[in-house]
Design a protein around this nucleic acid. Structure first.
Ligand code: ZN
Ligand code: ZN
Ligand code: ZN
Ligand code: ZN
Lengths: 140, 140
DNA sequence: AAAAATTATGTTATAATATAACATTATATT
DNA sequence: AATATAATGTTATATTATAACATAATTTTT
């Protein structure tokens, strides 16, 4: 039985549920304040659940934001091979599912003989919606 | 005169100098304690200099480590297009200079019409030196 | 050169993020 | 049932980063 098929614990379920409800990534202390009514009282309880959920690929950490987002790729069995598109304006994050890009990244070799076991790629920019808002707001 | 050719301020020089002296990335508070003898007393002075040095491309932030490393690519005029190789064991970081990969990343388009202006890619693994150490340490 | 605007600095306090350490309880394995 | 493993609860603390405001240096404009 692999990690992914193991059932989640109570706290893990509560926290995964909260993260999945949110379109945007959520921060650890925001999670904490939102699940306190469910009996989760302190940061370590949140961080432990987050660590585990990351390990089994249910969520990912958005490094540039210190935030956490549910995995959007079904059967994402590669929790440490992630690609995101991040809007600098509204901070929305989309997980990129691009097999060709994955393949390219997976095949990468450096000149030092490093044995790679994962990668994280974050693209930054302005999302379509924010571009449109900016155009609307131009003052003449 | 562009940002890069502008001369650095006193604090910026002190902090860049310290970062460049280190092979490995350094943390903000480690920088602080190491430059206090030079008259830099408080975190904001460090973070301001770091922000500026990042902006002009002299250093990069290693997102997964909350650390800062000098740019190793001469004439790196793309401070927000970075690729690193990171050893999970010794935490050494190498900046990757791979024009073909850069081109590939630069050309990336998502399905949502996001206008990208940068990316950060971090490869994780075990460096050659750490692999060798691990082999040496196997007990029979 | 004087005035104004901009940039950098210094300082104190505090916010935000994350982990150490240890006691207890629940679950799985032998 | 005994043992081992994993998860939880709790308090305290470590680490990373910024807000806010006063002052000084530098650059630009007049
Ligand atoms: Zn995923
Ligand atoms: Zn947006
Ligand atoms: Zn660089
Ligand atoms: Zn190493």
């Amino acid at each position: 039985m692999d990690k992914k098929s193991k059932s989640l614990s109570k706290n893990q379920k509560i926290i995964l549920d909260f993260i999945q409800k949110n379109k945007k990534p959520v921060k650890a202390y925001s999670i904490l304040s939102n699940v306190q009514k469910k009996g989760i009282n302190a940061p370590p309880q949140v961080y432990r659940a987050l660590d585990r959920l990351i390990e089994i690929g249910k969520i990912h950490r958005v490094e540039s934001q210190n935030s956490f987002v549910a995995c959007k790729i079904s059967n994402c069995d590669t929790p440490h091979e992630t690609v995101f598109s991040i809007c600098n304006s509204c901070e929305i994050v989309s997980e990129i599912n691009d097999p060709k890009l994955f393949k390219h990244l997976k095949a990468f070799k450096d000149n030092d003989g490093t044995k790679f076991d994962g990668y994280n790629l974050e693209f930054f920019g302005t999302c379509k919606s924010c571009i449109n808002k900016q155009i609307e707001n131009i003052q003449y």
